[in-house]
Design a protein around this nucleic acid. Structure first.
Lengths: 201, 201
DNA sequence: GTCTATAAGCCGATAGAC
DNA sequence: GTCTATCGGCTTATAGAC
C-alpha cells in the first residue's frame, strides 16, 4: 500500500528561480515532516515521502537535518511548542473545566484537524527512540505549562492525568475512530468530559 | 538497532522429537506474535523475529497464518478475549469505581506486565490496517462487555470514555513512561482515578 | 544548493527440496 | 511438517557530479 502525501506538493513559494533558498527549503522539509509523522508515525513515515512533500529529494533531508531521528526531534519540538488546548490557564477553575472539555471535544471531532503534537506522539509510540524524544518534549512543554496553572496537592499527578485524558480521547476518537465516539453527540460528550476535568483542575 | 526478543526462545515443550506437532507450533507462533506485537507494534515486529521467538523459521509463520496481517488479527482477537480490568461488572457502583481505579493503577505500574491487548492497539496505531483490526476487536469485546454493565443515559459514550481513560493512562504511564506518572505514589494515583471512574460508571 | 546513483540491509512472501 | 534459498521491493544514509 502506498503512503502518498497528496497534500500541497511544494510549500516553497518564495524561492529563487534555481530553487536555492536554504531557509525556505529547510522550513518546507520541516513542515512536510510534521505532516508525515502525524499521519504515519516515526517508523511509518519515510524520508522519501517527507522529501516529496517538500518538493526536494531525500538526500536534502539528511543534508539539512543530519538524520531522520534528528528531524523527528525538531518536528516534535516545533509542534509541542504551541500549547493549543492546555494553555487556558487564565480562567477560573469552573470555567476552565468547561473550556477544556469544549476544546478537547472540538479538536478530537471526526472531521477536525488533529493536534499534530499528540498525533505524532501517539503514532510513534512503537519506536523507543521516538518515544524518548516525545517524552522529553511533553515534559518540557505541555506538562510544565499545565502544572504551573494548578494549585493544591498532587499537581504533578493531576497534570499528568489531564494529559492522559487528552491522549486517550485523541487516540480512541480520532486515531482509532471508535464508532461510539465518532457518532457521539458533541454536546453530550462535552457534558461528560466537563466533570472529569473539574475533578482534576 | 536490533529488535531481539530475548524472552523464552522456544515455547514448544510438548513437541515430538522431530518438532512436528502442528497444533503446538501454531500456538507457539501465536504466543510469540502477541509478545512481539505488544512490544514493537504491527510495523515494528517482523515475521522473522516472531518466528525466532517460537523456535521456527519465518516461512512457517506465513504457512500457518497466511500473512502477517492475518496473524495480527488472531493475536489481537486472542488478547482481547480476556476482559482483564473491565469485567468487574458484578460490583455495586461505588465499589466498582474503586476496583477499577485500583486495577488500572496496578496494571499500569512501571514494573508490571502491560495489558497485551492495549499495548498492541496503542503501538500499532500508525498502521491503518492494524488500526482497523484493533477497532473491530475493541468494539466486539471490551466495549460490549463494558457497556452491558452500565445503566442510565449515554451508556455508549460513557463506556467509550472509560476505555479512553484506560488507554490514555496505559499510553502515558507504561508506554511513554511520563516521569510524573512513573514516580507517582500508587495510593495517590488511585485516589485521583477513583472519582473519575465514579463519574463515568 | 541540489542533483543522480548507489551502498548495505531489512522487509514480507514464495518455490522447491526433503 | 519444516527446511534453505531467494525474489522483488522497501528503507536510511552517503559519494560524487554539477
Amino acid at each position: 500500500m502506498p503512503k502518498s502525501v497528496p497534500d500541497r506538493p511544494v510549500l516553497r513559494s518564495a524561492k529563487r528561480a534555481g530553487g536555492r533558498d536554504a531557509c525556505a527549503t529547510r522550513a518546507a522539509i520541516l513542515a512536510s515532516a510534521v505532516r508525515a509523522f502525524a499521519a504515519h508515525g516515526y517508523d511509518g513515515a519515510g524520508v522519501r515521502e517527507i522529501a516529496r512533500g517538500a518538493g526536494v529529494t531525500a538526500m536534502l533531508v539528511n543534508r539539512y537535518f543530519g538524520s531522520k531521528e534528528k528531524l523527528f526531534g525538531e518536528a516534535v519540538a516545533a509542534t509541542m511548542a504551541q500549547p493549543v488546548i492546555l494553555a487556558q490557564g487564565n480562567l477560573a477553575a469552573p470555567d476552565r473545566a468547561r473550556a477544556f472539555a469544549q476544546a478537547l471535544e472540538a479538536i478530537t471531532r471526526p472531521g477536525a484537524a488533529p493536534l499534530d503534537g499528540f498525533a505524532i506522539m501517539l503514532k510513534s509510540a512503537a519506536s523507543p527512540r521516538a518515544a524518548a524524544i516525545s517524552r522529553a518534549q511533553i515534559a518540557k512543554h505541555h506538562f510544565q505549562t499545565l502544572e504551573r496553572t494548578l494549585t493544591g496537592p498532587n499537581t504533578e499527578e493531576r497534570a499528568a492525568l489531564v494529559l492522559s485524558l487528552v491522549a486517550g480521547l485523541h487516540q480512541m476518537r480520532q486515531t482509532l475512530r471508535l464508532p461510539a465516539l465518532v457518532k457521539a453527540d458533541p454536546a453530550a460528550l462535552t457534558a461528560l468530559l466537563e466533570p472529569l476535568f473539574a475533578q482534576l483542575l
